[in-house]
Design a protein around this nucleic acid. Structure first.
Length: 285
DNA sequence: CTGCACGCCTGCCCGC
DNA sequence: TGCGGGCAGGCGTGCA
């Protein structure tokens, strides 16, 4: 679901509200998401203060007092929704949660000052973990991630270093989180369209100029999406519950059979490594 | 090593 | 209206 721009949008929404606040109580309603919550998860979180909120790839990183970081991944359908609580009686009680308990509300965090953060995830492909902040880079989910295309300065040289030698199709390669971090199916398709590169081209066949264009367009399309509040297709919501706006600007994603905005040709769908690829054969070579 | 199929889980949409 | 199949912003495993 959410790719790096959606997680970044959530981060930008949460940071001014939660930074510096004490987490008064946390509650889980089931033992696991994609994997079990860490041992004594809710108890270990209680009383910690949020020192900073960061992001790496599609992971939201809540740096907490006590030298540990809470890692949150939203999988395909995870949401983090921040609300004002219904008052002290709501604390620690799902049934007094603001707006009532919704289906698939799996975790609630109550913060000082009357803020309630709910994690909802129908498919439960998400994960949460708690890890020493000093060793964050060694966390199994983070240690093998590639560079972030949204970072200013990300270049074609860097991109070629990551995918240049590979014989697989470029679409599949840029989705590989060990090569590039944070790119998902939407932005892979959109960036390849912007760069005019066919998704079936082999990494090894990309020219330096094409790599430069793709590096630039990956960064541009993802930063544009953050400015629009991310892309909402089904589940994704910003932290304030509003939907994103970038889905209205898709050139090819989820637009099979419609006209390419650049050449007027028909957008086509193909399947690569089990995932849909949307592209325009008229202007992607 | 690499690329790919599959499973994880629920919901929604479409066609019959 | 009901039901089955296909599909979905991700990722880890296991296989050839």
């Amino acid at each position: 679901m959410p790719e790096a721009p959606e997680i970044e949008t959530i981060r930008l929404g949460l940071a001014p509200e939660l930074t510096g606040r004490r987490l008064e109580k946390a509650l889980t309603r089931r033992p696991d998401l994609r994997k079990p919550f860490p041992r004594d998860f809710a108890e270990r979180l209680q009383g910690r203060r949020v020192e900073e909120i960061g992001r790496r790839s599609k992971y939201l990183l809540l740096g907490l007092s006590g030298a540990e970081t809470l890692l949150i991944h939203l999988g395909m359908s995870g949401r983090l929704i921040l609300k004002r609580t219904n008052g002290p009686e709501a604390l620690g009680d799902f049934h007094h949660a603001a707006g009532g308990v919704q289906a698939h509300d799996h975790v609630v965090f109550w913060f000082e000052g009357g803020l309630e953060l709910t994690y909802n995830d129908a498919r439960r492909f998400g994960m949460m973990d708690l890890h020493p902040t000093a060793a964050l880079a060694e966390h199994p989910a983070l240690k093998a991630l590639g560079p972030e295309p949204m970072t200013p300065g990300f270049s074609g040289v860097e991109l070629l270093r990551r995918i240049g030698g590979a014989r697989g199709p470029v679409k599949t390669l840029i989705l590989d989180q060990g090569r590039l971090a944070g790119v998902g199916n939407i932005y892979a398709c959109e960036a390849l369209w912007r760069a005019g590169i066919s998704p079936t081209r082999r990494g090894v066949d990309l020219t330096p100029a094409e790599a430069e264009a793709l590096a630039r367009d990956l960064g541009e399309v993802m930063r544009e999406s953050v400015r629009a509040g991310g892309s909402t297709l089904r589940d994704y919501r910003r932290a304030d519950g509003e939907i994103g706006g970038f889905q209205d600007r898709f050139a090819v994603y989820d637009r099979e059979g419609q006209a390419c905005p650049r050449c007027g040709g028909r957008v086509e769908r193909l399947v690569q490594a089990g995932r849909s690829t949307f592209w325009c054969p008229g202007c992607q070579r």
